[in-house]
């Protein structure tokens, strides 16, 4: 029983990670054919860093992801605070409302946002080219918001309610109480919300495809247009780097969490 479990688990991990391995191997291949590994090289990586248009795209994606996750984290945290302070009935309703966009198919969100932007842009603001960097950013903030709220809410619920009372008792205005006490308590939720928003933003294709114009395009949208012809190996190199970036972020997030838990557990045992 134990052995079958172990074998199954191994198989699942192989299944999950083999595509990444193939991609990584391909990024070090001298030949253009993925089916045949000729010899090992870093050439693709050199080429990648010489290709200014690809780097530009990567830069675009990073700019949108960072800005969108920053804004979504700020707004999301404020929203979570507001929802948390509602009475239980309203809170439940508000949480359902914030959860719906998450389960909504991306293509529906993308098309409806696109329609909205075009309508507002051309009809109300009278612009000819209504899909810009700003519409893309707004769209990304929109779909990131629920993820931040979802991460921050449980931390607010876990927090001892009397902590804010205590802060106000000791002279803090509600705003001071938030920055001096509440923020520290819910920080882990904010950080994981921000990282989640960042990764969601970085890899979004469907929604971005509908809301970006010609003058500002993100990496996934542009790569999609490449796939009609064979992909260049330097793109594999870039994907490998992106994969590593996300991997490092995830490991860092987990380490911070483990370290935090251990520190708490350690200080607790020290007291006894």
């Amino acid at each position: 029983m134990k052995r079958t479990n172990r074998i199954l688990t191994t198989l699942i991990f192989i299944f999950l990670y083999i595509p990444m391995v193939v991609l990584i191997v391909a990024s070090f291949n001298t030949g253009k054919d993925i089916t045949q590994f000729e010899s090992f090289t870093f050439k693709q990586y050199v080429r990648l860093f010489q290709d200014s248009s690809l780097l530009q795209l990567l830069g675009n994606s990073l700019i949108v992801s960072i800005l969108a996750s920053f804004c979504a984290t700020t707004f999301g945290t404020v929203a979570a605070l507001g929802i948390h302070n509602l009475n239980p009935k309203m809170r439940k309703a508000a949480m359902t409302l914030t959860n719906i966009p998450m389960t909504n198919p991306d293509i529906v969100t993308g098309v409806s946002l696109s329609l909205l932007f075009v309508f507002v842009g051309t009809r109300m603001l009278g612009q000819r080219n209504s899909l810009t960097f700003w519409t893309l950013l707004i769209a990304h903030i929109t779909f990131n918001l629920p993820y931040v709220i979802l991460n921050v809410m449980p931390k607010l619920k876990q927090m001892d309610k009397s902590l804010t009372d205590a802060a106000m008792d000791l002279g803090c205005t509600p705003v001071q109480a938030f920055f001096r006490v509440t923020l520290h308590e819910i920080m882990p939720g904010i950080v994981s919300g921000a990282i989640m928003a960042f990764t969601m933003s970085l890899d979004d294709f469907v929604i971005s495809y509908f809301v970006s114009g010609l003058d500002f395009v993100t990496l996934p949208v542009e790569i999609y247009s490449y796939t009609k012809k064979p992909l260049q190996p330097k793109i594999y190199a870039m994907f490998t780097l992106l994969f590593l970036l996300i991997l490092v972020l995830m490991i860092a997030m987990n380490l911070i969490q483990v370290y935090g838990d251990r520190k708490k557990a350690h200080s607790r045992t020290a007291g006894i």
Binding site: S162, D165, M168, D169
Partner: peptide, 19 residues
Amino acid sequence: PPYQRQINTVFQRYALFPH
């Protein structure tokens, strides 16, 4: 509001700031 009263409180479960 509480922050303008010359009153302080010892809360039931202490409510010390963990950070």
